[in-house]
């Protein structure tokens, strides 16, 4: 038989199906999710998530999620990738992201005004992480399932612009990528977990929340970042090795900041075809609203 027609020139298979999940299934998740938020402090946050070809072919739901938030001068983003081997992955990722963001906002708003800002960020992120874990634990108990069934990665970020530069706190459990473009440099902001085999990682549920607290790190950038991004591995994996390909990602993302509906443009961008890339794709980005040229 001829195999020529089975792939495009770039090796993408031509027999992917797009199937709907069983209508009887609960915890339904839309195949795409977008959000845009312009903050009072002159920054914009845009995020998009879309079901991967793998899930579409199987007729299963998107398992990635994200949540954005802002309060006063603070911006926050969380992306989460529900574990493919976890039956309630789609519930876990959404719950972790949303519960963390709402808790972080509460802590930021309640922080004493004289408290050091770096400490405010650190404590808020730690509480967000704890709340994400505890929300998953409570959900597991309510459903009578084990915590691992709700397994998800967790990548969180809090940003506050300063008179000069920025203050940034990050935390990452599992794979995916947090990165920033500052000046001519692109830096990764946390160390992704990768297991001994490619494709294995940690989930928030792999350890007790206390074990993750020291992963929170806070730093100051003397220069204002042009863009900060958080993404799940469905996108990040396509840009490995990062030294070679991450600059291209920012080249793709920057023009979106000029679009009237950047969240829709981002969702479209995340529909790119690439051989071997069929996971869900989720990316959140933060940038000064008057975006500086990259």
């Amino acid at each position: 038989m001829s195999n020529v027609a089975m792939t495009t020139d770039s090796g993408v298979a031509t027999n992917w199906l797009t199937l709907e999940p069983d209508p009887e299934l609960g915890d339904r998740v839309p195949h795409t999710l977008t959000q845009a938020m312009t903050t009072a402090s002159g920054w914009s946050m845009v995020a998009a998530s879309r079901r991967g070809k793998g899930h579409a072919h199987q007729g299963s739901f998107r398992e990635d999620s994200f949540a954005l938030g802002q309060t006063g001068p603070w911006q926050l983003m969380v992306v989460a990738d529900g574990g493919g081997s976890c039956p309630l992955a789609r519930v876990g990722s959404r719950l972790a992201a949303e519960s963390a963001v709402s808790t972080i906002i509460k802590y930021l708003e309640a922080a004493p005004p004289d408290l050091d800002l770096a400490k405010v960020i650190k404590i808020s992120l730690q509480h967000g992480l704890r709340q994400a874990w505890e929300s998953l634990a409570a959900e597991a108990e309510q459903r009578g399932v084990i915590l691992r069934d709700l397994g998800t990665t967790f990548l969180g970020m809090i940003h506050r612009p300063l008179d000069e530069g920025s203050l940034l706190g990050v935390v990452q459990v599992g794979d995916g990528l947090l990165a920033a473009k500052i000046g001519d440099k692109i830096i990764t902001l946390a160390e992704p977990d990768t297991g001994e085999a490619v494709g294995s990682t940690y989930f928030l549920t792999s350890l007790h929340w206390k074990e993750w607290l020291d992963r929170v790190s806070v730093g100051t950038f003397a220069q204002t970042p042009q863009m900060i991004v958080a993404m799940c591995d469905g996108v990040a994996d396509d840009f490995i090795p990062y030294d070679n390909y991450l600059p291209k990602l920012f080249d793709y993302l920057h023009p979106l900041t000029q679009q009237p509906q950047p969240e829709t443009a981002l969702l479209d961008l995340l529909g790119y075809n690439k051989r071997g890339s069929f996971d869900d794709r989720t990316l959140a980005m933060l940038y000064p609203t008057q975006a500086q040229p990259l």
């Binding site: 793998g54 072919h57 199987q58 574990g83 493919g84 081997s85 691992r148 397994g151 977990d193 297991g195 001994e196 085999a197 490619v198 494709g199 294995s200 990682t201 940690y202 989930f203 792999s206 591995d233 469905g234 994996d237 069929f278 996971d279």
Partner: peptide
């Protein structure tokens, strides 16, 4: 091939 991003550390066996 479809579940290659599915496993957590310590359970990286093929299902």
């Amino acid at each position: 091939s479809v579940a290659i991003n599915a496993a957590a550390v310590g359970e990286a066996k093929v299902d």
